[in-house]
Amino acid sequence: MSQSHLYATVLAEERRGGIRHAALTATVLAVCVAALWITDFFDSRRFIEGIPALAQLASEMVPPDFGRWQHWLKPLLDTLAMSIAGTVLAVVISLPLAVLAAPNTSPNGLLCQVTRTLLAFLRSVPEIILGVIFVAAVGFGALPGVLALALHSVGMVGKFYAEAIEHVDPKPLEAARAAGATPLQVITHSVIPQVFPQLADITLYRWEYHFRASAVLGIVGAGGIGFELMAALRLIAYDQVSAILLSILACVVVVDALGARLRKALK
């Protein structure tokens, strides 16, 4: 009797759990559908009108017109240089900030919080906005693009670096301190060697991202291939637009493969 009572209790509990689970699933689904509805996704009229326009655009994009390819080499090279320069700057600024932002290496709690807030602020300003600001400040070209990429990335890279440093094994740090290392030596010789593969990983991902992002930054006048892309769009030369997009795609594939290979080598 008491056993069947126990079974009944367990099954009732399971049923309650099932109902909670179903309610949660329904809520998540409702939010997703609402988001699509708010953004007019269910307005079929716009799709019916839009599809022929899309087809028209697509047909104008083929065949891609690579006629001006000589004019794109330099901008593509600029974009590549921007991505590398932006990464270098981001790393140089991020590393000391990350040391300050990681609780286990930060000299004090307040500085740690202040640095974390600064990183969060930098992260929250999109690079396209930073791009517009820097174009206004230093003029058109690759330089504002590099500055925008670097500054936005410091927020991201600094946070990831700090997280890597935070999870470092404290034992070798104690060994370095015991051997008379200065606090800075503990960081350079005990913390960094432990997290180096993670830092390299984060940096290379960021470099790959920078290449794609710098193509977009060209649109606001911050140099590189994005500038050419914008020019082609303005001229409604969609066959050139598709050619430029394909060129960017080819470069992204190369950069990603290179990044993957470097990551492997630095393990």
């Binding site: 060994a175 008379g180 593969p197």
Partner: peptide
């Protein structure tokens, strides 16, 4: 000298020993 050795696993033995020269 520590119970758990306190070495950095991904460095070479020599690099670990060189920590003793840091100071």
């Amino acid at each position: 000298i520590f119970q758990q050795h306190h070495l950095i696993g991904r460095l070479t033995a020599l690099q670990n020993v060189l920590m003793g020269r840091l100071s």
